[in-house]
């Protein structure tokens, strides 16, 4: 159990993602390396913001139209559906749930994050497009919360993803989450919410941290 065996490089890859050969209909042999052939290997670039009034206007639009990825990681995800109920009604702040990371700009890490879930959260985060923001709910994402000594739950989210707003509590009520959205709006409008660019700049540090705990890294370095 505890002793390490010789691990082949593609041990953790899903069978369809390992290097393999395919024979074409007229007998030619095609070598397929799915990680290189099917995925984009480029790394993210820093997309410089515009200057002056234009960027202020765009930031206002971004702040007033927060599309949240409907993805829950922990117990906090049960606090999100009430946000869209008549009582709290986050729609009036321009907040909307989107089912696909491509169209959403805000990733809410709702509560404790197991290593297994972190991998999915990273993939979702990286599939979102450049102005993107992370809201971390609950004390688990701040310092581990009640899972601070767990073998499988991360302690500090900001070592793996650039966090814009932390919302403390265990769990924060929907009112607190609404306040967090407003805080995020202020941050975007002031032009400080450049998490995506920060992530692209410090990609090596983030990737080192991520790969330290995700030992079965079976995806491209950056999941476009």
């Amino acid at each position: 159990m505890s002793e390490k065996k010789d691990i082949p490089e593609d041990m953790f890859l899903a069978p369809e993602n390992r290097k393999h050969t395919v024979t074409g209909p007229d007998g030619e042999v095609i070598h397929v390396d799915p990680l290189n052939d099917y995925f984009c290997q480029d790394l993210p670039k820093v997309e410089a913001p515009y200057k002056g009034v234009l960027e202020k206007f765009l930031n206002w639009a971004r702040a007033e139209s927060l599309w949240v990825l409907a993805y829950g990681t922990g117990c906090g995800s049960i606090e999100l559906p009430p946000l869209f109920s008549p009582r709290f009604d986050a729609y009036r702040f321009g907040v909307m749930m989107r089912p696909t990371p491509r169209q959403s700009g805000v990733l809410i890490i709702s509560g404790y994050l197991a290593v297994k879930t972190l991998k999915r959260a990273i993939r979702s985060y990286e599939q979102m497009q450049n102005p993107k923001y992370v809201i971390a709910l609950g004390s688990c994402t701040i310092n581990g919360g009640m899972y601070f000594d767990s073998y499988n739950t991360i302690n500090r989210l900001d070592h793996y993803l650039p966090v814009d707003v932390y919302i403390a509590g265990c769990m924060p009520r929907p009112e607190a989450i609404l306040a967090g959205f407003n805080k995020l709006k202020e941050r975007i409008k002031s032009g400080n919410a450049e998490g995506a660019n920060h992530y692209a700049e410090n990609l090596e540090w983030y990737k080192a941290n991520q790969k330290k705990i995700i030992k079965d890294w079976n995806m491209p370095t950056y999941n476009w």
């Binding site: 505890s2 953790f12 290593v115 739950t153």
Partner: peptide, 24 residues
């Protein structure tokens, strides 16, 4: 996924030490 240590629920596995070493 990709666990390469002692099975974590065994009592001689020190989860606190492991978490401190691993999770910043």
């Amino acid at each position: 996924e990709g666990w390469d240590n002692k099975p974590p629920m065994r009592r001689d596995f020190d989860t606190k030490k492991y978490a401190e070493e691993t999770f910043f």
